[in-house]
Amino acid sequence: MDIKSLQDRFQEKVDAEIKIEPRDWMPDDYRKTLIRQISQHAHSEIVGMLPEGNWITRAPSLRRKLGLLAKVQDEAGHGLYLYSACETLGVERDDLFQQLNSGKAKYSSIFNYPTVTWADIGTVGWLVDGAAIMNQVPLCRCSYGPYARAMVRVCKEESFHQRQGFEILLTLSKGTEDQKAMLQDAVNRWWWPALMMFGPNDADSPHTARSMNWKIKRFTNDELRQKFVDVCVAQAEILNVTLPDPDLKFNEETGHYDFGAIDWDEFWAVVKGNGPCNKQRLVARNKAHDEGAWVREAAIAFAEKKKQREMAVAS
């Protein structure tokens, strides 16, 4: 079959909501787009463990420590589901690690911000996992089967992440004046970076139309960002915090909240490596990878030895 008819058949399937599976024919650009998106997503889950892992030993109670530990472990799991989905497209895990550790691959910029107080852990759960959920729920219907299935597992686990974060903040909101101030300070610092998680405005997002046509994406960046703002306002009221945006206001006409302009210069600076923690994150990833090398090698050597011993017994 010629390329044109293969392409047509592919698009017909996508349009009819028939999932594309690993061995099915797919356009090269579809494959490349998915490899980039799924691997960036996987890297984000892995790097995302660092800012939160920072607080596990200092969690204020056993209950909080258990919750945070379980959440961080889930994020490792999410990374693994996603790497495994990505590998079905014909890339190797080691090449993906290599791209992350060398700084060539991108991951979500939000994880280049520091978690300086305990309130940051609650705020990450509320806003960062909250924004991630907003992004991820539509991905459960992505046209590529393995990615969609991985996202179903991820989304099932995410809601606990957001709740544990919100509960931390709710506790602080009923605490001392210092605790309330710490809560407000964390929200002030995380609000705008959380809005940036949805990516550039639609007008500056040249590949959105193509991804929507391929049903990788179901909503545009701005649509998802708006949904997120709309749900956060009421939640902020419960926490008795203000969101740091003087332009945030309900618009009777649209039925949505209007909000102020995002500082895209900051966004691009962080994407390009100049955020507060970019270097630190890469150093931590490389250190973990390098210091684990002997474990990986020893496991291979042990498996080899066991295999040979079994063969010797059998013969």
Binding site: L80, S84, R93, P146, R149, A150, A299, I300, K306
Partner: peptide
């Protein structure tokens, strides 16, 4: 349910 890497079957 998916895949993973491991040195041997037990792992």
């Amino acid at each position: 349910v998916g895949s993973l890497h491991a040195a041997d079957a037990d792992m």
